[in-house]
Design a binder for these strands. Structure first.
Lengths: 229, 229
DNA sequence: CGACCATTTGATATGGATCAAGCGATGTGG
DNA sequence: CCACATCGCTTGATCCATATCAAATGGTCG
């Protein structure tokens, strides 16, 4: 794990409240009920979980909070690779180093498991091996979808983002966004201004409501779906 | 395999000449020396190897020729997912269906192996299981790199493409492109006009030479590398 | 209350798309 | 063997979506 991490993370006891951490998606049985393999670590908002090019010695699962992975290009621009919500696994690499950095977007509790332990388990149990493969394949699928997003126009990208978040946080209609406009912009390959304008446009078109900047109510999904098609 | 494929492909004897098919990259031992597991099939230029959403019953390895995978969006635009050169494995999915379509860019000979055979082998031999995982992880890495390309400007995208092709075809300085400008444009998320203009610009800047439209000589890599950083 | 930061809104600039025409290689039929 | 059609590529002119630059607004915390 990153050096920087140690300075900001609080390695304390497992959380009392980790309510919505049993989503079916992106879960490894390795992280299942018998979690004696890993430790729960708390990360403060904006603290680094690991950095690009650091050794990938651990695999992570979000118990609560939200995580972003990202890469900073030579010209200083940042590309967010993914957002990880409770239940999601991230940081699983086959190479020895992380290809993206990871940070907690909000205060987060993260289950951390030694990668070597996971791989050793996979060597013994080919069900585990298959799950490891499946998790990587899911990540591949997600990345392909993300790639397809980046060739669309601004409205289509933002609509897709809203629908994705609504779906993943399964909060029927209303989304509480943990991430900033900058995070969204860097995920969608747009500027914050364009994201903001597009949201305003959707609000004007009565497709969404924006009671607060981080709270979005989907009013007319078919409008968004049409853009998403 | 696709129905359409049967009409265009020639299932004939293995090729006499499959010179450069033993690249270290993206190879599965499953496709190694004892290839009794698979059959070699010939595909004519522009013939379909498989279609999006078709059952992913086979895994493929390019012996000679070049393959493109792609997806057509609802608005008719096409995104090329990848180009596969001799030695490359493609079509490996964890779901039951292909997420992209695949076509031969030039007349190609392709080694085809039943997916179920590969998976059965993986269940017995965890070295094979690990390779299966590694192949998917490599594909993930490639897709991540491709995604990062799409947020760059036109010059950077074209430079990256040229360097990638030069590297992969290891033809020291001169590249013989098997794909059209349209293929390149659809891979890079640009139009053919922009690709063409950018190449002309690189030629004017003495970074490349264009003796023929499909032949590109890299004259000054550092210029291209600077853009690629 | 006032400072600060995130977000929105406004005005302008620009890179690449679009529309349109020209060019060069390849192949075909007279 | 040469006109001519065709196709892939290049070049030119213009337009437009989104970036950029700049300022206003609003929510949060001391």
């Amino acid at each position: 794990m990153a050096n920087k991490t140690q300075t900001t993370a609080h390695a304390t006891q497992p959380p009392v409240d980790n309510g919505n951490c049993d989503l079916p998606r992106n879960t490894l049985s390795l992280f299942g009920t018998d979690s004696h393999m890993g430790a729960t670590i708390y990360f403060d908002q904006n603290s680094e979980i690991y950095g690009e090019n650091e050794p990938a010695d651990y695999v992570y699962k979000v118990l609560s909070g939200t995580v972003r992975t990202y890469k900073v290009l030579n010209d200083g621009r940042r590309q967010v690779g993914a957002f990880y919500l409770p239940g999601d696994v991230f940081g699983l690499e086959i190479g020895d180093e992380h290809t993206f950095s990871a940070e907690a977007i909000t205060d987060s509790s993260i289950l951390v498991v030694k990668r070597s332990a996971v791989i050793a388990q996979a060597a013994r149990d080919n069900g585990v091996a298959r799950e490891l493969w499946a998790a990587t394949a899911r990540e591949l699928r997600r990345t392909q979808d993300h790639l397809l997003l980046l060739i669309k126009n601004a409205q289509e990208r933002v609509a897709a983002f809203l629908l994705e978040m609504a779906d993943r946080s399964q909060a029927g209609g209303a989304i509480e966004l943990p991430m900033s406009r900058q995070d969204i912009a860097d995920y969608l390959g747009l500027t914050i201004e364009t994201v903001s304008r597009t949201l305003t446009h959707f609000e004007t078109a009565a497709a969404i409501e924006l009671p607060r900047s981080r709270r979005i109510v989907l009013r007319n999904r078919s409008v968004l779906n049409k853009l998403n098609a």
